Amino acid sequence: MSPFKSSTGLPENLAATLCYLLPMVGGILFLSLEKRSRYVIFHALQSLLAFGILAVAHLLSSAVPIIGLLASALLALVGVLMWLVLMANAIQGKWFKLPWIGNFAEKQMQRI
């Protein structure tokens, strides 16, 4: 466990993992609660953005007949794999950034 505590009282790596454990909800929750840990804020933003984009992609794929079904299945697989990788890296205390989304989350974190 991380020796550093977030403003929620949880170790930083545990708080960051919880951002991913409950996709989007965890991100919103920790964005509203966290006041000082840049590590937790980054993972909350990345979670919110990544799973928000994934949800929109699922919604759009459902509008396409036949191919949309295959796209939806692939999105589900990508979503589960992404979820596992993000949680594993967060609990280990790594600043793992998804391509594009991680950079965008980092830029948004600078504004907060």
Rank of each mutant, 00 (worst) to 15 (best):
Q110I: 12
A71Q: 00
L48Q: 10
P65C: 08
S62M: 12
L22G: 03
C19Q: 01
E106F: 14
S62R: 13
S6H: 01
F42E: 05
E106G: 09
F96M: 15
I112N: 13
L21F: 11
G68E: 05
E106K: 14
I91G: 06
L45I: 05
V80H: 03
A105P: 05
R36N: 12
L54V: 03
A16F: 08
L31E: 02
L84P: 02
I101Q: 11
I112T: 12
A15G: 00
V56R: 04
H58L: 13
I91Q: 09
I53C: 10
Q46K: 01
V40K: 04
R111F: 14
F30A: 01
L98V: 12
E106C: 12
Y20V: 05
K5T: 02
V78A: 15
L10I: 02
S7C: 05
P11A: 00
L70Y: 08
L48V: 01
I67M: 11
I91Y: 15
Q110R: 14
R111L: 15
I67G: 05
M82W: 13
A44M: 07
I112W: 15
N89I: 11
W83E: 06
L81W: 12
E106L: 14
L81D: 10
N13M: 02
V40N: 01
R38S: 09
I53A: 12
V85Q: 14
M109R: 15
M1V: 06
L59K: 04
L69K: 10
H43M: 00
Y39H: 11
A76D: 11
P23Y: 10
G79P: 09
A90R: 04
Y39W: 10
S47D: 02
S62Y: 10
A88G: 13
V40D: 02
G9C: 01
L60S: 04
K97H: 13
W100L: 15
F30C: 04
K5D: 04
L33K: 12
S6N: 00
Q110D: 14
G79D: 08
P11Y: 03
G27Q: 03
H58Y: 11
L18A: 01
M82R: 09
S6M: 00
F104V: 15
W95Q: 13
A55L: 12
A44T: 03
Y39L: 07
W83M: 01
V56N: 04
G52E: 10
C19R: 03
G52W: 00
A73S: 10
S62C: 00
L86S: 14
K107E: 15
T8Y: 03
G52S: 08
H58G: 04
S7Y: 04
E34G: 03
S6L: 05
G102P: 08
I66K: 13
Y20A: 07
Q110M: 15
L31M: 09
M24E: 08
